[in-house]
Simulated scan of single mutants.
Amino acid sequence: MENNEIVIVGAGPAGIGMGILLKKLGFESFVILDKGRVGASFWQWPEEMKLITPSFTGQGFGALDLNAVAPGTSPAFTFQREHLSGQEYGEYLALLAEHFELPLAEGTAVHKLHKHDDGFSIETNHGIIKSKAVIWGTGEFQFPKLPFTGAELGLHNSKVAAWRQLKKGHYYVIGGYESAMDAAEQLASYGSDVTVVMPNALQENAEADPSRSLSPYTRERLEQAYEKGNVQFLEHVSVRKLTTNGAAYDLHLSDGRRIRSETRPIVATGFHSGAEQISRLFAWGEDGKPLLTKEDMSTKTEHLYLIGPSVRHQNAVFCFIYKFRQRFAVIAEHLLKKWDFALDENVLAEYRNNQMFLDDLSCCEVECEC
């Protein structure tokens, strides 16, 4: 494979969005690598799973679709859906890649990333690629957390092809946030009874920032299932260990209880940062996320940038598409200016006008008076 000045790893919303911006700026020496295809993680979602952020066409009034990764595009317009499925969103990303003629190398798995004085060498299943900079955007969905002994005996929610395929019964869902509540609601919608084993409590998930709490979309669906009596909660308790007992499963809880489940427990405990694949090239914070400069570059490795849901800056959490897309222009401006590349200020203005150029992190607290 030919060498490029920039290699973007990952062809999800972060990688595609970043590539579109580089194209718009006239920068051509880059490639987007993905071990699967464009939007691969979204194609792996359970078929009933939908984006929790609503899509809406409001560009004419200064409101870019929350799930768009480029100005002038809208998944809501394309699919006439407010909450898109994974397959629909994967198709949206593929349409963008084709429309903007992005340089893609699908089916290209990155095995190792090496830093040298003059740049990087990237070992792939198709050989070695060299670059001056790497923008890492592998996302998180491919890296499920299994945080307790025996967790692999359960069924992680990311491994479910379709909730309708699970036989009706009484399920224990382990976890206390979006993944767990979505699993509970989906199982209940197909007639199962569900007990959510959660280390927190529902009333604690009441912050205005949906990155730290449950989204209104999830709360609304969950309340309907709870009112029907299908969903119950065991709050302030964690699963310490999961074991098998014949054809059944035993959940060993932090309060000393042991609960028998006749169905395979659902493990919905979230995901690791995709940057853990190259963990030695980042310094890490106490929250398990990479430490970054104000331009989203690794504090440990020059010219290695991070995009996507693992981006953190103190109290600012960029785990949603409408958040992390605000950082594409910050990276592009910083990197290309360092290389004395002439930037098209009209493109940067377009991104700023569409709330896609957040370079002032002092305004990231979410506060609602009522």
Results as ranks from 00 to 15, higher is better:
residue 15 G to C: 00
residue 80 Q to I: 07
residue 54 P to Q: 07
residue 25 L to C: 11
residue 57 T to Q: 11
residue 43 W to L: 15
residue 11 A to M: 02
residue 65 D to Y: 03
residue 74 S to R: 06
residue 76 A to D: 10
residue 43 W to H: 14
residue 9 V to P: 04
residue 28 E to P: 01
residue 49 M to A: 12
residue 74 S to G: 07
residue 79 F to C: 01
residue 50 K to C: 09
residue 46 P to D: 04
residue 19 G to V: 03
residue 24 K to F: 06
residue 57 T to S: 12
residue 72 G to V: 04
residue 55 S to L: 11
residue 18 M to F: 13
residue 82 E to S: 11
residue 73 T to H: 09
residue 34 D to Y: 08
residue 17 G to Y: 01
residue 16 I to A: 05
residue 66 L to D: 10
residue 44 Q to C: 06
residue 51 L to F: 15
residue 7 V to T: 13
residue 9 V to N: 00
residue 11 A to E: 03
residue 23 K to Q: 09
residue 38 V to Q: 07
residue 70 A to I: 02
residue 46 P to S: 08
residue 31 V to P: 02
residue 37 R to S: 15
residue 57 T to V: 14
residue 13 P to E: 04
residue 74 S to V: 08
residue 58 G to C: 08
residue 15 G to K: 04
residue 38 V to K: 11
residue 33 L to S: 14
residue 53 T to L: 10
residue 12 G to L: 09
residue 73 T to P: 00
residue 61 F to N: 11
residue 47 E to N: 13
residue 55 S to C: 14
residue 39 G to N: 03
residue 82 E to C: 06
residue 42 F to N: 04
residue 30 F to S: 08
residue 65 D to W: 01
residue 71 P to Q: 07
residue 80 Q to E: 14
residue 12 G to A: 05
residue 67 N to K: 06
residue 64 L to T: 11
residue 38 V to I: 13
residue 34 D to R: 05
residue 53 T to C: 13
residue 25 L to M: 13
residue 43 W to K: 13
residue 29 S to V: 07
residue 74 S to Q: 11
residue 56 F to S: 13
residue 6 I to W: 04
residue 76 A to S: 15
residue 18 M to P: 03
residue 9 V to A: 08
residue 27 F to S: 02
residue 58 G to D: 11
residue 61 F to M: 11
residue 28 E to A: 13
residue 7 V to S: 09
residue 77 F to S: 10
residue 55 S to F: 07
residue 69 V to L: 05
residue 80 Q to Y: 12
residue 31 V to D: 01
residue 47 E to P: 00
residue 83 H to M: 01
residue 43 W to E: 11
residue 29 S to T: 11
residue 10 G to K: 12
residue 26 G to N: 11
residue 55 S to W: 06
residue 8 I to G: 01
residue 26 G to E: 06
residue 66 L to R: 12
residue 26 G to H: 13
residue 72 G to M: 05
residue 21 L to S: 02
residue 52 I to L: 12
residue 25 L to A: 09
residue 24 K to A: 10
residue 22 L to V: 02
residue 11 A to G: 01
residue 66 L to F: 12
residue 80 Q to T: 08
